[in-house]
């Protein structure tokens, strides 16, 4: 992710052309191509087989799940029955969990990106007393793992009456120290001070300058910050686990674990869980594959210009 923050620098553009160059010139060595590709395929199998398994498993009824080969489909395909059951179980609680996840991750990542951009821009483009102290403190926050703050945060939120509410998961998701860090670097490198000065002379207010010039120039960095925060919140488990006791507020991670924990007593939860897992990894997997380009785009854009 390095280059995400790579400000447009002169050294980067030859780098790109040359990688392309080495690729072309080197592809003559055929034996090495076969070996390397074979290794890459084997590794790809390792990463993809669990996903393939869950696709297969989700098409089977509970009996078939245990009696047929796990790597191949059963004669009767029960996929639609399974999925219908996942979506309708307990009055569609799965859909609710899904929407909760979308809410936490979508709103959380959007606002977190905006706040990080404003803060990073302020720290980069203004000189004011206490600036270094503020930045140093926030930088320390990058190193504090989320799980370390979750427990005390729960104690704090219980006192404030916020525990077991949407806010208890949403509020901590709005802060991304790393995002601010990234936005600061990117602002320093790309937001042109003379442009700001010109806008000032035109009589634009400071906030307006940020919203019109700052945010526009920062867009590539904002995409990266947004994606990281989105995945981070979507994958978060410890925080909602600590905060939430009402299953109606659960994100999908917590909900599916709830189903899994009932498998021992009620085997039909196997179908529910495999179906639920399948449905829950589809959107993010598609997002990963598609966004992987942006992710890199975000990176290289800074350097290629």
């Amino acid at each position: 992710m390095t280059a995400t923050v790579t400000p447009p620098s002169t050294s980067a553009s030859p780098a790109r052309t040359s990688t392309a160059g080495t690729r072309r010139s080197g592809s003559k060595g055929r034996p090495s191509t076969i070996i390397v590709t074979a290794v890459l395929v084997v590794v790809a199998l390792y990463f993809l087989i669990p996903v393939y398994w869950v696709v297969v498993a989700a098409t089977k009824s509970t009996e078939d799940l245990f009696s047929t080969n796990g790597f191949w489909f059963a004669p009767t395909v029960a996929l639609w029955d399974n999925l219908a059951q996942v979506l309708s179980y307990d009055n569609g609680i799965f859909i609710r969990w899904f929407l909760n996840s979308v809410l936490y991750a979508g709103i959380g990542a959007l606002l977190a990106t905006y706040f990080a951009a404003a803060g990073g821009y302020a720290l980069a483009k203004y000189e004011f007393r206490g600036r270094n102290l503020v930045f140093g403190t926030i930088l320390g926050g990058v190193l504090v793992p989320g799980t370390a703050t979750a427990l005390p945060l729960f104690l704090l939120f219980s006192q404030l009456g916020l525990a077991n509410t949407y806010w208890s998961v949403l509020l901590p998701s709005l802060v991304s120290p790393f995002g601010l860090f990234l936005c600061r670097i990117y602002s320093q490198a790309t937001v042109d001070t003379s442009l700001i000065e010109a806008a000032r002379l035109d009589g634009a207010g400071e906030l307006k300058i940020f919203h019109t010039i700052g945010l526009r120039v920062l867009t590539p960095a904002l995409v990266t910050v947004f994606l990281f925060q989105l995945v981070g919140i979507w994958n978060n488990y410890f925080l909602p686990l600590v905060m939430l006791s009402d299953s109606g507020l659960y994100p999908i991670t917590l909900g599916l674990n709830n189903w899994l924990s009932q498998v021992d007593r009620l085997p039909e939860f196997y179908e529910l869980t495999t179906g639920g897992v399948l449905l829950s990894i589809i959107p993010l997997s598609i997002a990963m594959v598609v966004l992987q380009r942006f992710w890199r785009g975000g990176l290289t854009e800074g350097s290629v210009k």
Binding site: L48, V51, V231, N236, L256, L284, M288
Partner: peptide, 13 residues
């Protein structure tokens, strides 16, 4: 893309 895909699968899942 194939190697990066698991990163989009939450640890719990």
């Amino acid at each position: 893309a194939a190697y990066f895909l698991p990163y989009g699968v939450p640890g719990v899942i």
